[in-house]
Computed example of a mutant assay.
Amino acid sequence: MQIGQYLTLEEFCTCTQTYQKYADQIAPYPENLEETIPALEALCQHILDPVIAHFGRERFQLTYGFCSKDLKRFLAQKDPKTGVKNGRVDPSRDQHMAHEKNRNGKYYCSRLGAACDFRIVGLESGVDSLSDSTDRLVEWILEQRLPFDSLYYYGGNRPIHISYAPQPRQNIWTFTDGGVPTRKGLEKIGMPRKDAETDQKFGV
């Protein structure tokens, strides 16, 4: 099933390393199809389709798309061999679960919308192409005024997290060494820091 010009629902639901590792134990697809599928389609239409059209399908690498209930459970667990947690999951804020609901009929994320993490492979920027490639991607997104809701910038050549919601907030976050969201350091990617209100919210 296509959810955008370039991406399928299967790719969006099965791209994570955690799913690949535990595929036989994870049901990766949405349950609330009536609401979640349109949210994923909107993310593609407003954010991912323009990105892929510009940078090319062969350079686009999706690293984390939709998070099902099963995937959420496995991401929160530790690998039995290494003792390392499979991944990070914050369903109440990160929008990876889109419009899925818990057993009480409440949305996991009240922001609704949908989110994904991706990188553009081989993106060069100036002399230091490895460390600056993600910076260039974010700069392009801002230049094009894509209507994102939240954008998480992890720095260097790492994937970015981006979401779309019906009322996009255009919030950009960087992260402290301890993994706490903050607006500090936004000047590096050409985005002035608005205020300290959100830092206080997260205890930075």
Rank of each mutant, 00 (worst) to 15 (best):
G56Y: 15
E100D: 11
S125T: 03
A23F: 15
R119N: 02
V127D: 03
F55S: 13
L33M: 05
G185T: 03
E197W: 10
G203T: 11
R93Q: 09
P91C: 09
Y153H: 14
L137M: 00
I120E: 02
N102Y: 09
K72M: 15
E139T: 00
Q95D: 10
L7D: 02
E100P: 06
Y22H: 10
Q200P: 00
L142I: 01
I162R: 09
I189W: 06
Q20L: 08
V204Q: 11
T14P: 04
A39N: 11
R183W: 02
I162S: 10
P181Y: 02
P80R: 06
E124K: 07
Q167H: 06
D24P: 12
F118D: 00
L48C: 08
P28D: 10
N157D: 12
E143H: 07
T176R: 15
P181L: 06
L40C: 05
Y107L: 07
C109A: 04
L33V: 04
K69N: 10
R88F: 15
I3K: 09
R119Y: 04
N157T: 00
I120C: 01
E100H: 05
H96A: 05
G65A: 05
Q167T: 03
E197R: 15
K69P: 05
L43M: 05
D195N: 15
F118G: 00
G105A: 06
F12H: 03
Q2D: 10
D79Q: 14
G155S: 07
G185W: 10
R158E: 14
N86Q: 14
T176F: 15
D149L: 09
N171E: 15
F118W: 00
K78N: 15
P28Q: 09
R158M: 14
K21W: 11
F175C: 14
M1R: 09
G155N: 07
V84G: 07
P181S: 05
V180D: 09
A115F: 00
D195V: 02
A165T: 07
I52W: 13
A115Y: 00
I26N: 10
F66G: 00
Y153R: 12
S129F: 01
L186E: 01
L75I: 10
D24K: 15
A39E: 08
L33W: 04
C44H: 01
E124W: 03
Q25S: 12
S163V: 00
K81M: 13
L146Y: 13
E139S: 02
A98C: 13
L123V: 03
Q5K: 15
Y19N: 03
E35W: 04
L33K: 08
Y154T: 08
R57A: 14
R169F: 05
I189R: 01
K81C: 11
Q20M: 10
F74E: 06
T63W: 07
P28H: 08
Q167L: 05
P80F: 13
R136K: 02
Q20R: 11
Q167G: 02
R119Q: 06
M191A: 10
D90E: 13
S129R: 01
N171Y: 14
G83E: 12
Y154N: 07
N157P: 05
Q45K: 14
S131R: 03
